[in-house]
Design a protein around this nucleic acid. Structure first.
Lengths: 219, 219, 219, 219
DNA sequence: TATGAATGAGGGTTCATTCAT
DNA sequence: CATGAATGAACCCTCATTCAT
């Protein structure tokens, strides 16, 4: 998605006169790239302006400032994953299948969206000071919990899933197993002296995660 | 440990005349506190100097600069957890007991040492650029892997543990389940609208983690 | 020229709103004064900013940094002397006359432009590390060598000038005789206990230089 | 001379306890090297201490400070060239021969002692502020002027040398022709795009200088 | 005599943001 | 809507020098 945007918007050519939508998108896109891997403090407003081919002043016009821009990026990022998650229609499947699919999707999404991991890391370093200001963010997560809760109940009722599992706890576990591996892969590779990045390692981790979660679901 | 040092060294009083060991320790201590929660870019050398009660120049004298100091903090932090881990003497216990103890210890340690989580987050944002320069770091982790491997083998031999478990994979999982919850508790609390910090929640998470890991070990 | 600029731009009054050309010139002017007599290391960016009446940040905006500014000053300085030299139209005169004029001009120019001497001294202390990065500098000196070469050939052909004189060697000699006297006048005055600065001494040196060069030209 | 000292005093090994003469010499030697090519501002007291294998405090003990050390280096440097010059016994030769020998010696000495050129450049950048404080410096130069004056008079009396030549003026010219070429060789090489450093170029310049001076002497 | 830890005053540079056009 | 020159506050780091041992 990011690559697509990068391709469609030349970083050198100005966005052209008077195209607010495009200007806004270009800024957001460049900002996502810059905040990812540089953090909030490390990111440079100048770099974002240059990369987006937009005048620096526009960032203040559209987003109020660096922090406003950062929050917009954060919201956009969360919105994107929940959107993709919703497209899975997990509610329509069998309980075990639904959870297995969520596990696989989460792992895949984390691999394909390093900016999601990075931005969350940054935001937690700041103790969610910015995310907390978001009005939309809570609502974005109701469906996920509701669906998971529904499937756990159904699975427990027919004896396929251990009863009493907290859906939030379970989701955190599903996310944990992939998130930590990927976001900490650099230090992990260093301390264990072993690549974490190559396709084989990623596959092995994916299978391991699935095994861990499904073992836990068993009654 | 940090708390202890913080208490014994007044931030206002100078470290006293000519006490290199104490000066070095005071700097390291203040730096750990500053890098934790501010990150590498956000941390201020001036603040570290002021908090440690030593002249700013001494930081350059002892650590070469901000980055050298940061690396020293990182090494110290890793060293501390591996040290505490070693004190558990996991090799002397029964396999399941040893792993259960490692799970509990890890969770406890993460709770009590937020600076460990924070520093690792920061270092991974920088893709382990600094940690990679450390010569000692690999050696620090041999014992952990060796012990875990040994216990997994023993457990598998007597039919108590599922065979074929990769010890590194397992350790990453054990760490994941606590690390992600704690380091991301701020965004998690925000998106799920539920406290993650109170004792009850921490206890519940601890029990959940233990259940997940032990389910997975079962043959 | 420098004096003129210094007069026209008050060091206290800001350069006025939004006048890039003037801002750039003001910085360059103040920098020439500061590098002259302080050297590269001794010069202070703060002083340059203050003297030029512009914000310190602008120096980085226009010149990239202290060293970039220094190189710009260097190029400007070289450009100025070659420009003035070109205005003599030495190619249009008789050979001996042309060289005599070059000798006189060079001496006069060195007296009137102490910053030229000083900057070259500084740059040679640094082994031309900065000048070497200049793309324009070579081209600036082609005409001088060409003209001198032409006149030496003509003079030799009609028997007025000793044949076989290397134009570069001759130019270096012409410059030497004035440059060394002026740039080293402070130590020379000290070791010989005799003023080198007063008009009479300067006149005497000028006549001496002319005599030396013309003696050498004779066949 | 410098090389000799550098060889006899290991930069790593401390000068040993209680050897004032050796300590002083080691500092002076390292300082000459550091001031040469770095200038007064660019030179670092720490570097001098490290290179001389002597504690930094000793520099303050023996020379009072950086500037005192610099002056000592300056005096030492002047003293060395005048000493070597005196060893030529120019007063005992024929006039033309004596001057030719002085020209050759000066050129050779400048080539072999780049620190002499560099230090004089530095000192003149500071308008001889430090050298002027030296009590010895004047006396060091009497013999040179006296000898030169004597030989010029003798040569004029027997019709071999143009009468009325000012010995100081002549000496400055002799020094100029070599000094400028060597001290400015870096910028000269850059602007003329031609090496000034190789043996052939140095030889050519030496012959040129001799020709210029001798042409001028002719009645 | 000798050591090296400690100091305080700045040096160059960077940055988010504002302002005139 | 758009530009990029201009700003001032800090930030990291350096250095000559002094002090306790």
């Amino acid at each position: 998605m990011e690559a697509t945007l990068s391709k469609s918007i030349s970083p050198k050519r100005p966005t052209g006169p008077r195209d607010p939508v495009r200007t806004r998108a270009a800024i957001l896109d460049a900002a996502t790239e810059e905040f990812n891997g540089k953090g909030l403090n490390g990111a440079r407003v100048d770099t974002i302006a240059k990369r987006s081919g937009v005048n620096k002043r526009m960032i203040y016009h559209y987003f109020g400032g660096k922090e406003g821009l950062y929050l917009a990026v954060l919201e956009e990022t969360y919105s994107a994953i929940r959107q993709a998650e919703g497209d899975l229609h997990l509610g329509d499947r069998d309980p075990i299948e639904a959870i297995r699919e969520l596990v696989r999707f989460t792992w895949r999404y984390f691999i394909q969206h390093p900016e999601f991991l990075s931005l969350l890391g940054t935001e937690n370093l700041h103790r969610a000071r910015y995310l907390r200001q978001s009005a939309r963010i809570r609502d974005l997560h109701f469906p996920l919990v509701a669906t998971l809760s529904h499937q756990l109940d159904r699975g427990a009722a027919i004896g396929l899933i251990r009863p009493g599992i907290d859906p939030v706890q379970l989701y955190i576990t599903i996310a944990s197993l992939g998130f930590f591996y990927l976001s900490n892969r650099y230090t992990l590779a260093t301390i264990f002296g072993r690549s974490m990045d190559d396709p084989d390692s990623l596959d092995a981790r994916g299978r391991h995660i699935e095994a861990v979660v499904l073992s836990y679901l068993k009654p």
